[in-house]
């Protein structure tokens, strides 16, 4: 079996296609395990993992913690709201203090792009990026592509449109890299103000018309409007956004074919997705959540295998 070409998971951009295939293959095994009556294996019993969340998170944090516990790793959790970061400690100092307590791997979410990369250069531990600002969220992209692979058998040749706030989304950037590495065709759809200027350089086409984009695609990955990251007004009102870019049953019924709807969560029901779509058969949102645990188990298993004993 081959090994990962990297010692940290900082972003999809730095991964090779064979790394992604290896993660998927490993995740297949873990998916079987988490559906057994006993969902746990003893593999990482000698590994300690710190989950450092400098930004709010429910799903990702729970998913990582479950994945770690199902691999029998020891887990410590940390959130910046209740820590000494508020007292002025630097990131490297905080992490080195945690590592002094003999921690082998760090899972980190941070509001600053590049925080995970910075950490990987300055501390001696395996780093897993759980989201760094609007830069990358690699495990989310992996689980999204894994869910597409599960539904269609392969990601290659599939047409995927990412709808919504692309500018502030780390999920979008990681997904674009991951989908393209696996041979899918990607377009983005949303108001021009929410599309980054560099999108052409990624060979991704911007489509303004929602219906045109949906008619083209096999899968629509719908993103939330990240109001907390928007410093200025990018569109007149949420109501207007929802009228133009919101996906509801009516829009789906008007298409020539059936498409698959994905969403990384949290959903703002009635804004980007209506409830009847979010709960419908064509949405695989909860499958994504289940696959998230298997993917994170695979990532940590493969990275932990590279830690010298």
């Amino acid at each position: 079996m081959s090994k990962l070409s990297v010692n940290h998971l900082l972003g999809i951009k730095g991964l090779k296609t064979k790394d992604i295939d290896l993660i998927f293959k490993t995740a297949d095994n873990f998916k079987r395990i988490i559906n057994q009556p006993i969902k746990k294996v003893p593999t990482l019993r000698d590994i300690t993992i710190a989950n450092l969340f400098f930004e709010n998170s429910t799903r990702t944090r729970l998913s990582f913690e479950l994945a770690e516990k199902r691999l029998s790793a020891d887990v410590v959790n940390f959130s910046s709201s209740s820590s000494s970061v508020k007292k002025g400690e630097t990131l490297v100092d905080t992490v080195n203090n945690i590592l002094a307590m003999k921690v082998d791997m760090v899972v980190m979410r941070h509001p600053n792009p590049g925080a995970a990369e910075f950490l990987s250069r300055n501390v001696n531990a395996s780093i897993v990026n759980a989201g760094d600002g609007a830069h990358e969220h690699p495990t989310q992209a992996l689980l999204d592509c894994y869910s597409i692979r599960e539904k269609y058998g392969d990601v290659k040749g599939k047409k995927v449109v990412i709808v919504g706030d692309i500018l502030h989304s780390r999920v979008a950037l990681s997904n674009i890299h991951c989908l393209q590495k696996l041979g899918a065709e990607v377009r983005v759809c949303g108001p021009s103000t929410l599309i980054p200027k560099y999108i052409d350089s990624l060979s991704v086409k911007h489509v303004s018309n929602l219906k045109e984009a949906l008619n083209w695609c096999d899968v629509a990955n719908v993103l939330r409007i990240q109001l907390e990251r928007q410093d200025v007004k990018y569109f007149p009102s949420l109501r207007e956004y929802s009228m133009v870019y919101g996906i509801n049953k009516e829009v789906l019924d008007s298409l020539d074919k059936e498409i698959t709807i994905m969403h990384p969560g949290p959903i703002n029901r009635g804004v980007e997705l209506s409830s009847d779509v979010a709960d419908s058969e064509c949405a695989i949102i909860l499958d994504q959540v289940e696959n998230g645990v298997a993917i994170r188990m695979a990532v940590m298993y493969l990275l932990a295998g590279k830690i010298k004993r």
Binding site: S2, N29, I33, V41, P42, T43, A304, G305, K308, R309
Partner: peptide, 11 residues
């Protein structure tokens, strides 16, 4: 996943 030589092999 139950082996005792995890992380102790090259590959």
């Amino acid at each position: 996943f139950f082996r005792d030589d995890f992380g102790r092999r090259d590959v």
